[in-house]
Structures are given as structure tokens and as C-alpha cells.
Amino acid sequence: MRTACDIVLTDTERSTLQRWSRGRSTPIRVVLRSRLVLLAAQGLMNKDIATAVGTSRQSVGLWRSRFAAQRLAGIEQDAPRGGRRPTRRDQVARLILERTTQTVPCNATHWSVRTLGTALGISPTMVHRVWKAHGLKPHLSRTFKLSNDPSFVEKLLDIVGLYLNPPEHALVLCADEKSQIQALDRTQPGLPLKKGRCGTYTHDYKRNGTTTLFAALELAEGRLIGSCMPRHRHQEWITFLTRIDTQTPADLDLHLIIDNYATHKHPAVQRWLQRHPRFHMHFTPTASSWLNLIERWFRELTDKRIRRGTFHSEQHLIQAIMDYMTEHNQHPKSFAWTAKAETILAKVARARAVLDKSASA
């Protein structure tokens, strides 16, 4: 009588199998195999495992033996399959790749499997398989922007230096405005989150005014200084700088990382800064808002408090923003900058080389 091989797991193997068996992004075939191996390690018979996971006894025996012989690699990767080599696909794969990456259709911005298949006289399935094998997804795109600031390198080194090696007896603050925040009220109540259904809200809305948030993130501790104002002119910026001046220790220099918005360089602002010599302004390069860590906090504010919020008035919106900021300051946490200037400059140089090559082609 044939008996199934015993399965004994190491701590590492058990931890990995448990993670795979619960993984929401793990392929379903790997989830199934992980579950049956875990049950086999408990001493269950193949027929009982088959009943528990909803598969056949033969499949349980196959993957039990595969794991015993190859361990984790045996169930994570499929064995090479038999069948005839796809000669037709090999013949047209190069042509598919050239058309996909170097041309566009006549009246569209990118190819689809059907339009490219029609143009080449092949099936859409073949196009899809070649794209999948080479990681091509023409329907997806993302935006980018390389700074053309002539002082890009100097400004980058200055700001990254503040992040990685802040000066002594000084505070580094990342400051900016988040303008035109809309107080949106939905036309109907949304449906709450429930099992099997995400929360909902109506696509249409009523505008109840706007506000502008002025905020500064103190780099060392993550404390926020902020206020909402109806406009974002140089007068409001000076008011905000005055707030920073009064809410920080008077014996410390203040290094502010800000962008190149004209308000920040207004003559009245320059005169105010001359009267307050402890303020030192550090401007990010143009088109480089990613260098200012306050933008990262603005994103959290938008995602967690504003985007799906319902605000019946402008004051309701302002109160929600200030409450969120107050809660943050009760348990302040900053963002750790880890990228070195050399790494960033090398990445920018590679991107610029690709752009120059594309422009000359």
C-alpha cells in the first residue's frame, strides 16, 4: 500500500507558506498549494486535505511530492509545460515589439491588442501574449517633468544637505501653500462601507467656498504650524511668516524650504526678511516640488481628510483641516529623507540622456 511522504517544515518555510496562503496578491494556485502543504505538515491524509481545500486527491499527492523534493521552489514555480513551440509567435514577436514601441496608429495615441492585431494581420491573443512576455502595457502612462533650472544642482545639494545634515542651533521647516481647497457638499448621502462593497459618494456636488492652507512642517520633530486664509497673496505670506516667528524659539535660526512662487519673492517679503535676519530661505528648483516634504503631508491631508469629506460651509472645511493638524501635533511624526544627492543626480542624468536621444532621433 502506497503511503504519502511525511512533510516536516522549518520555521522559515512555515512562515512563508502561511504568508502565501493568506496573501491577497498571491496567485490563487500558489495559495492552494501552500494550504495543502500546511495541512500535510499537520499529518492529514491526502483525501482529507483534498476535501478541505476543494481539489482532487491526485493533485494533493502531486504537490506534496513536489514540495518534498524541491521545497518552496517546487510549489512557487510551475514546471515547464509540454506542447509544440509557438513558431508563429516567434516569427512576428520582433515586428510586434517594433510597432508597439516605435509607432502609433493613424488616429489614436497608442495601440490596443485589436488595432495592432488588425494592422499586422494576426490575432489579438498573439499580440497580448507578446506584450505580456515583454512587460508592455501601452494603455498605461504616467507624467514626468525634468527641471530646466540652470541652478538645479546647486539648489538640490543645498536642500538635500539640509535634510541629511541639518545645521546646529537651527530649525529646518518645509513650508508652502495649499491653495483653492474646495468645501464640497454632496447632493445625496453616501452609502457606508460594508462587507463586499466599498463606501460610495455621489459624483456631483455643491461648492460652498474655498480656502488656502499655509503650513510649515518642522523637520526634526514633525510638528506643524499652519493657518487657513481666504487668499494667498504676499500679504498673507508675510502674516504666515510672522506666525512662524512667534511660534518657534527666538534663539534659533530658521531655514525655510519653499518653492519659487512669486509671492515668496515679493519686494515686501524681501523687506520683511531683512528685518528678521534669523530667516534663511532655500528655494527648490523649478518643477521640483517633490523636494519639499510639506507636499508629502499635503497629500496625506487630501487623501485622509479632504477628498472624501463633506463640508457644508467654508468654516466647516477650515475646522476640519485645523482639527486634523491638531491631532497630528499631538503625536507629531516627520518624514525621513533618505535619497542622497548623488543618487538623484545620476537618475536625472539618465532621464535627460533618454530625452536628448529621443529628441535627436
Rank of each mutant, 00 (worst) to 15 (best):
K194T: 12
I96D: 07
G196N: 11
G199D: 03
L136M: 07
Q91L: 10
L184E: 02
S179I: 01
A170T: 09
T100H: 01
S141G: 07
C106I: 13
V172E: 04
D158R: 12
D185H: 12
T143I: 09
Y163T: 01
N208M: 00
G121W: 05
D185G: 04
D204W: 07
I96C: 00
A119G: 00
Q182K: 08
S141I: 00
R197K: 13
T143L: 06
L136Q: 02
G161W: 06
A133F: 00
R94F: 01
R142D: 08
R114C: 06
T109S: 10
D158F: 00
C174N: 15
I122L: 01
D158C: 08
L120D: 08
R207C: 08
V153F: 02
V127Y: 01
A108S: 12
E177G: 01
V153H: 06
L191G: 04
N165K: 05
V172R: 05
L156M: 15
W131Y: 03
V160S: 10
W131H: 06
D149Q: 10
R186K: 14
W131A: 05
D176G: 07
A170M: 13
G190H: 07
G196F: 09
M126R: 01
P167R: 05
F144L: 12
L156E: 06
A133C: 04
P124T: 03
V113T: 14
T143M: 04
V92N: 06
L191P: 00
R142I: 01
G196M: 14
V153L: 11
C174M: 11
L164Y: 02
I96Q: 06
L95M: 10
P189T: 12
K137D: 09
K178Y: 04
H110S: 11
H128G: 12
T187I: 14
H169G: 03
P150L: 02
D158Q: 15
G161M: 11
